[in-house]
Design a protein around this nucleic acid. Structure first.
Lengths: 203, 203
DNA sequence: TTAATTAAACCGAACATTCGGTATGTTAAC
DNA sequence: GTTAACATACCGAATGTTCGGTTTAATTAA
């Protein structure tokens, strides 16, 4: 991709994480990029197309888990690797968007960005649901192995355990977002609960 | 409050639950109410004021828990009462906004409404945080009693248990929202997990 | 090496439309 | 005849987009 185009996408990502699609103005965007309206429409046919490319960039490049990197030896190692990756996200995120810790109340908008995407592009919904399903399946598989190996034992089914861990972290993330916390600050709170849950299930 | 004004707030609530503050336009709103711009500005000084009144209506009248109504006898009863109230919400909600089950993919926007509120009215943040804190405190108190009475026993502290239950349900709600579920449909999924968690802690 | 040609990159004023908001009515009740 | 409850026509500012143009870079010809 062209340098300028990439630059526009990056700058736009930052803006779309702070404001909704509607709230981000072309003049604002153009000003933030340092380029002109003409330059913008040289690379994009519309504001909508830019938004789509931002979504693609964000959800397939910034916000994806690389499950294959996480340990499958033990459930304990797996969820620690998982949490660690989220933490690394946080740093990469701040770095990528050149934010210091002070002005990153924008972490909030991972959620609003997602909701905005769902509203504007209904086809995005299937993608997201598929992503959630995949995540659940992987967790379930890991937990199944852990149980078979005798690492854990629990009244819950494998999938119930998986849902408990995943949804718990998402719920905490939402609460933290309301409070204006950064992604990195989210990890310890749910790690604390994850570890306790794990302890309760340890064989 | 005047009939017309109340009507405007109700119609506006429905719209603000589907779209963001910016996305809802005056013409759209006026058309939806069946009244005119003159009528609107007779009752409200601005779109912002309306939004504030909608927030007040929604978060203090529709979306509040009446904790005093929940049983404090047992933790089990408490969280069942809690879940039941959410379910009743759902019905009241659909009823209040005159929706049938088909067109209520708008349940989504409880979250976006809240985020929108946070962005527009920073003072709303303190209110929400205070609300979350209150909720956590009440849960913690109930759990403390349950433990003292020998109803439950658990490795976690009282507050950790409370956070686990609360955040878990919020996380599930968010997932369901992405999938386009209604509020009522959210209850069984987290009830299933709550019951299992409870079973794990039952003395 | 340089001049000529072409294409890509970029600019910014101007466009039609839509936005939230206002000014000026009209009507009916008391 | 005053006032509350609306309706209608209208305003200026802001919106996303277009378009005629300029600058810059790459390519070719002399």
């Amino acid at each position: 991709m062209n340098d300028s185009k990439e630059h526009i996408v990056l700058v736009a990502s930052k803006l779309f994480l702070q404001k909704s699609f509607k709230e981000v103005t072309m003049s604002e965007l153009v000003k933030a990029t340092g380029l002109s309206k003409g330059a913008f429409y040289h690379y994009f046919v519309s504001k909508e197309q830019l938004f789509m490319e931002v979504l693609d960039f964000f959800f397939t490049s910034v916000m994806t888990h690389r499950y294959e990197k996480y340990s499958r030896e033990s459930f304990y190692q797996f969820y620690h690797d998982y949490a660690n990756e989220i933490y690394e996200y946080g740093k990469k995120y701040l770095d990528r968007f050149e934010l210091d810790e002070n002005d990153c109340d924008l972490s909030q908008n991972y959620f609003t960005l997602a909701f905005d995407a769902l509203k504007l592009f209904p086809e995005f919904k299937e993608k997201m649901i598929a992503g959630l399903k995949l995540e659940l399946d992987i967790w379930t598989e890991v937990i199944k192995n852990a149980r078979e190996k005798g690492e854990i034992q629990c009244l819950m089914t494998d999938e119930q355990i998986a849902r408990t861990f995943i949804n718990l972290s998402d719920g905490i993330a939402m609460h933290m977002v309301i409070k204006g916390s950064t992604i990195m600050e989210m990890v310890p709170p749910f790690m604390e609960l994850w570890d306790k849950l794990y302890e309760m299930m340890k064989a």
